[in-house]
Design a protein around this nucleic acid. Sequence first.
DNA 1: TCTGGGGTCCTAGGACCC
DNA 2: TCTGGGGTCCTAGGACCC
Length: 421
Amino acid sequence: MYALADVNSFYASCEVAWRPDLQGKPVVVLSNNDGCVIALSAEAKKLKIKMGAPYFKQRALFQQHNVVVFSSNYELYGDMSHRVMETLGALCPKIEIYSIDEAFLDLSRLPGDLDLESFGKEIRDTVKQHTRLTLGVGIAPTKTLAKLANFAAKKWTKSQGVIDLSDPVRQKKLMSYVPVEEVWGVGRRISKKLNDAGIKTALQLAECDLWFIRKNFNVVMERTVRELRGEPCLGFDEFAPAKQEIVCSRSFGTRVTAYQEMREAICYYATRASEKLRAEHQFCRQISVFVKTSPFAEGEIYYGNLASTRLITPTQDTRDIIFAATKCLDDIWKEGHRYQKAGVMLGDFFSQGVSQLHLFDERAPRANSDALMTLFDKINDKGKGTLWFAGQGISRDWQMKREMLSPAWTTRLSDVPVARA
DNA sequence: TCTGGGGTCCTAGGACCC
DNA sequence: TCTGGGGTCCTAGGACCC
């Protein structure tokens, strides 16, 4: 039996948790660069705000309803997430952290006489007490059903945030109400295709012929159908599997037109990606860079391109990665465009000790690489951005906009509120 | 003027092998 | 007139997730 615990309106709730004066008010959080709306408090959901739609198109609506707007503050959300996961881990030893705001709990090893619904309530109350954040909890024999139970727990307030779906009769009843697009793994494209075939509810999907699904969709969809029928197909990953790819990309605060600026940004992304790579204890062989102009700009010719290099020997040294990335940039840079976004991607990973040296690689190995990178990370760990590569530049006018950023309440000493007696 | 970032898995098709 | 069968590996693109 699994439980899925998921924080309601996570980003918006994190902001309100530290600003009790905002309780009961409509609050929204924007994506990076203050681009789109990506989180809404319950009060904001009642207004006609469109999730995922651009901020600038909804500004008038926000003013009209006195909506409080925040730029996204990932430092805060990351730390709050950590607190939630710690609390969940203390209540249930087997947990799989699925995303920043949700986790699956494996309930199979809990005492047999434990009432699942009251355990769900206990989880909810404890997290609330520790973090001021409210969870929805869904309990079921498969992950897909637990997701569905969680959806229902949030939707129907009389459930008080916890729904136990261990009973197959209750599973069917719920599925008959839930539209198929709410099923985990059914996105926009597939739900349209299912609707066209007359499949509108989760129950209809669960009762589909497996052969039909396999023929018209794929194995992923077949697993979803089986999971809805109560047959577990998705495993439980207590330990996060090693990453296969690392991406660092960002939209620019203002459009980039000068090569020098773009080069600075690429150096910065390459540095960040390298830091993530070392944090994963990996070496990479593939380095890619992409640049693009805005797909929405009218009267401009769209340009987007990607270049990759494959190294002979895997590396985790920022200097190698910056060198390769800037070379890639030179391959795709085109003068005369107003660039909106760029990024660096790392792939083809090797773990320490298994990288194969190359017979014909005449480049001298960097003797001090390991020590230098360790020191670099250690210094920056204490104070973000203390040491950086000159290529990143100093003024960095291209950096993203975050005009409504809240303080890092929990991770920066200077941001901790002062109480005066 | 202004439209996010970071991932995963699967499939089809091409190149190549014997 | 007629041209096999069985594989692997890689890449690009499409779908999904939060």
